[in-house]
Deep mutational scan, measured.
Amino acid sequence: TYTFKVDNKDQAKKAAKWAKKLGLSFQIEKHGDTFKITVQ
């Protein structure tokens, strides 16, 4: 499981695209202005 934080929606979208490309499941949680992405 890999967790990282991004500062904006664009970065969150890029991370989601990357995870989908690799066939991984992911969750994006919004914490105020940051997004926490968990990829597994």
Rank of each mutant, 00 (worst) to 15 (best):
T1Q: 11
T1N: 10
T1E: 11
T1F: 11
Y2H: 09
Y2D: 02
Y2P: 03
Y2N: 03
Y2W: 14
Y2L: 09
Y2I: 10
Y2K: 05
T3D: 04
T3N: 04
T3H: 09
T3E: 10
T3K: 04
T3P: 03
T3R: 04
F4H: 02
F4Q: 02
F4Y: 05
F4N: 01
F4W: 11
F4T: 02
K5E: 15
K5V: 15
K5T: 15
K5N: 14
V6L: 09
V6K: 01
V6E: 02
V6W: 03
V6N: 01
D7A: 14
D7W: 14
D7P: 10
D7K: 14
D7T: 12
D7F: 14
N8I: 04
N8P: 02
N8W: 04
N8E: 03
N8Y: 03
N8R: 05
N8M: 03
K9A: 14
K9Q: 10
K9H: 10
K9P: 09
D10F: 13
D10N: 13
D10Q: 13
D10L: 13
D10P: 06
D10C: 14
D10G: 12
D10A: 14
Q11S: 09
Q11N: 05
A12E: 01
A12D: 00
A12Y: 04
K13R: 13
K13M: 12
K13E: 11
K13P: 00
K14I: 09
K14R: 12
K14Y: 08
K14N: 07
A15G: 02
A15H: 04
A16V: 11
A16Q: 09
A16F: 09
A16E: 09
A16G: 06
K17R: 13
K17T: 08
K17M: 12
K17D: 09
K17C: 12
W18Y: 05
W18F: 05
W18R: 04
W18A: 04
W18L: 07
A19N: 01
A19H: 02
A19V: 05
K20P: 01
K20F: 07
K20V: 07
K20I: 09
K20E: 09
K21S: 11
K21T: 08
K21P: 00
K21A: 12
K21E: 08
K21V: 07
L22Q: 08
L22N: 10
L22Y: 10
L22T: 04
L22I: 06
G23I: 02
G23K: 05
G23R: 04
G23M: 05
G23F: 03
G23S: 04
G23E: 03
L24R: 03
S25K: 12
S25Y: 08
S25I: 12
F26V: 14
F26Q: 01
F26R: 00
F26M: 08
Q27R: 12
Q27F: 13
Q27N: 09
Q27E: 10
I28S: 03
I28L: 06
I28Y: 03
I28P: 00
I28M: 08
I28G: 01
E29F: 06
E29T: 11
E29P: 00
K30E: 08
K30V: 09
K30M: 09
K30I: 08
K30R: 11
K30G: 05
H31R: 08
H31A: 10
H31E: 15
H31G: 04
H31F: 13
G32S: 03
G32D: 06
D33L: 07
D33H: 06
D33E: 10
D33W: 04
D33P: 08
D33V: 07
T34A: 14
T34R: 11
T34V: 14
T34G: 15
F35D: 00
F35E: 00
F35S: 01
F35P: 00
F35G: 01
F35M: 04
K36E: 12
K36G: 03
K36D: 05
I37Q: 00
I37K: 00
I37F: 08
I37G: 00
I37W: 01
T38V: 08
T38Y: 05
T38P: 00
T38L: 05
V39H: 01
V39E: 00
V39A: 02
V39I: 14
V39D: 00
Q40I: 12
Q40S: 14
Q40T: 13
